[in-house]
Write a protein that binds this DNA or RNA. Sequence first.
RNA 1: GGGCGUGUAGCUCAGUUGGUUAGAGCAGCCGCUUGAUAAGCGGCAGGUCACUGGUUCGAGCCCAGUCACGCCCA
Length: 927
Amino acid sequence: MATDYKSTLNLPQTDFPMKADLVTREPQMLARWEAMKLYETLQDARRDAPLFVLHDGPPYANGNVHIGTALNKILKDVVVKAASMAGHRAPYVPGWDCHGLPIELKVQKELEKSREQLTSAQMRDRCRKYAEHFVDLQRKQFKRLGVFGDWERPYLTMSPDYEAAIVATFFDMWHQGYIYRDTKPVYWCVTCRTALAAATAEAEYADHKSTSVYVKFPVKSKPGNFVIIWTTTPWTLPANLAIAVHPEFDYVWARVGNETWLVAEALLPVVAQKAGVANYEVISKHKGRELEANNGNGVVARHPFIERDSPVVLATYVTLDTGTGCVHTAPGHGLEDHDTGRRYGLPTLSPVDDSGVLTADAGIFANQHVFKANRPIVEHLKQIGALVAEEEIAHSYPHCWRCKNPIIFRATEQWFINVDHKNLRDKALHEIEKVQWVPAWGFNRIQGMIEERPDWCISRQRDWGVPIPVIKCEACGFVFEEKQYTDQLVALVAREGVDAWFKRSANDLLAGVQCPRCKRPTEFHKAADILDVWFESGVSHRAVLRLRPELKYPADLYLEGSDQHRGWFQSALWTALATEGHAPFKAVVTHGFLMDLETKKKVSKSYGKPQDSDVYVNRFGADVLRLWTISEDYRNDVPLSEEIIERVAGTYRKIRNTFRFLLGNLNDFDPAKDAVPPAKLEELDRWALSRLQGLIKTCHEAYASYEFHRVYHSVNQFCTADLSSFYLDILKDRLYTLGKFSHERRSSQTVMHTMAAALAKLLAPAVPFTADEVWQCLRPGGGREALDSVHLALLPNHDDHLFDGELEARWERLQTLRQVVAVELEKARAKGTIGKSLEASVTLGGGDAETKAMLKYFEPQLPALLIVSQVAIELDRGESFSVKVAPALGQKCARCWRWEPSVGQHTGHPAICSRCVSVVETLEKLN
RNA sequence: GGGCGUGUAGCUCAGUUGGUUAGAGCAGCCGCUUGAUAAGCGGCAGGUCACUGGUUCGAGCCCAGUCACGCCCA
């Protein structure tokens, strides 16, 4: 029995496992939360608390949850959980974007395989099924990430109430005059036969080889004079209606052989070289503005192969980078060209049909496909002697984001939102000043975009979406715009969804209505286009914030990737400004994009890095993935690599072990009965408590300012530097070897208990599974702490009374001393004088007055604080501080492992020190 | 090509209004421990602060340019 002193120690003991095994344990926690209806319970518990609404931007209901989407969702969840724990009622209604081309194309492909022929209503039905499938799949994956929300009642852009809100918003803006129909060049994919939104990610730029040509346009009634233009799209030449020059640039008439050419002075040598002309002579020089056709002496050219004038016009977008300084202008095939054409009253000629075939207006090139027409056109130019030069150039050219084919500009009838109507743009610019942008440069970014953006093209020529709900009378052309009709349509959509629009005839849609103008029983006609899906998601402020009683308008926060400055933030802003008069968000937080650390490029399939969130969840667990998310400063791009996540997993283990140690040593501690009041705490414990206040403060600020990486780093720092290597290391001796009920031990346990509870709460928004697992083991006793989940708790508050700067400063000096001593101990270890530090006796001497005072102050505690067996202090050793390390005196106590002269002096317990003897004797008396 | 950003040790982050030898944790290397043990402790070694040039007595911080990367647009 004399040797079994180990059983007399208070060693840590806990059911909290060291190995997290998150992949199997997290689903169990999810089941527990589900069973206790945690989200609902939390909402109910905060029902009278101030409301905080983060409004979810809907991900697209297609495919698995991408790791980038997981990043976004986790950030949102951290915000929501932190808000809730800061005392808010923070409901989270997740949503999905369900309509749109990607789903329609996927379904179409499936149909092609099975060779099915479906009506558009049947087609829409398939699309709906498809979207529903992925909503279910993604919902599971999002829940698995530990994201709290109203998952059973998410918002879907394809649900009738949402669709009704879309239609209602359209009508609202239509009535106010924001919406117009016009012929305008838009990006057009000839393969998908649809317009693409320029303001969204529907056009991708990629390198493309084009035939560029220099073409002579004869000057009207001046034989031998030519204006030289340059273009990379010869197929648009049939649509040429003008030639643009810059008003401020210098242009010259140059004699080339027996001809006279007009080009920009700066580009003449280049043009001559391309044309293979060695000799030329400048005849006269003019400012661009002097050449303008409607100016008395202006220049009017003739189209080289169509009987038509091509006047010289002015435009400031003309550059001298390439070409001739004389820009081929086809208002039907370019946005800038269209603007110019409009200024000069030119028509919008666009002789190209839906599938990219040139029409009769293209003259002899009719019936040719645009991408195949280049060659014949160039050949024709050559034949008629209009071709100056030809060359292949590689340049960046827009491609369809979906089918990857090159796209064209084509003028079509489209619906637009006039962003300048009723000073909407100015209002937008004013409104964004009132919004809090995080990071702050988000303001500059969106401001620039709002200033520059053209009118918003909101129509698409597709099936899977919400129709542009406009009906007119076939007979007399009357358009049913009045509120009585549109209200009827909105009510219908609210009842049946927009499927009604596709399934019913126009007359049926306006059941019981007669054309008020012609008053004849006649056929009505419904518009064929559908709305841009950005319009749909944009109006979520109306469909969700306004419709859901638990939410509010405007939202406190929108949080998305920085691409949404042009996407959702704007589509929400424009529609909200037009219908509500102000922005739908008070603050906007943006995050960067995932980057592949190895390649320094964005994460993409081609580099073989896994894309699916589930891959990471099933390998590391959601909490590690979440911890990684908050470890990064997401305001910049976020690097992703094996190493990075492994590092974070290491931090996770450190934090977890810290919890395990705390819990293990709290095994016999009941805070209700055993807690030591603050005033009676040991100084070391007061220090730890004071440090905790600093951590609490930092975390509060970090959560409030959305700087989650500061939570990660400060908690990590605290666990490693303050706790693990200092506080807890020193504590081991007193926790293990002193009497169970000793004041010192209870004092430390009191602080450790506070510490564990505080850390669990501080970390709950970040690692919800682990924090709650700790919470269950901690069983914080009594009162409001007796909550079933840490997520029902509030964040700990920084307590000024527990913070003691003076004390911290004093202990910082001690820590410096500790480092100096550690270096000397290491030297002794290297020499073989000692092994562990308890085998050492340390002599400290000399130093400045401050050091001496510090030594004197800490003297009685120094062996414990330095974790050595003896410390001798020799203050009279002069100004220079010295540390000497020698083998400890006495013998090693078999129980507490300190070296003590008292070991061997007690007859009953010859193997242990006097301090341990008294503890053991007390135990013996109890037994 | 344009707009908005980013670039500090192998990794993630700190670096106060420009002011001494640029900090931390992790990883690395070398030890100790075996009573937090697929743990714990200590020590050591890592940086031309992307590059170039300015302003200044002094620049990681200010200015200009270059390069790389990202988002958005052409």
